[in-house]
Amino acid sequence: MIMNIDSWKSQLRKGAAELAVLALLNHTPSSGIALVKRVEPYPNIGLSGGALYPLLNRLEREGKIAGRWSSETVGRPEKAYEVTPDGKAWLAAMREARTFFDQDMNAILEAKA
């Protein structure tokens, strides 16, 4: 039997990227490059820079985050994102769903036959 743990791990990440990005931005508004650096300590989330910008672009168009250009970095403008009220409501709903999912999954994993 072929066991591909990477494939299974990628399944675990389904939908996690959006939740992770919204949660990080909810804590602290950040630019894309800053977000990439902030997720570096969490390699298991699997959030890479290449796919981050299309996701940020979509979330902004959906009104879940708002981007604003700033030139705080000397010589280089950056677009900083923050979570909108709609995004905060969406994040709360996602967190709740995730909590219930984790509760049930933990109960199954810890259940004794």
Binding site: S31, G32, I33, V36, G49, Y53, N57, W69, R76, P77, E78, K79
Partner: peptide
């Protein structure tokens, strides 16, 4: 243009 500016900023930082 907005997307490209952001990607350029990302690549310059990298």
């Amino acid at each position: 243009g907005d997307i490209v500016s952001e990607i350029r900023s990302h690549l310059l930082s990298a």
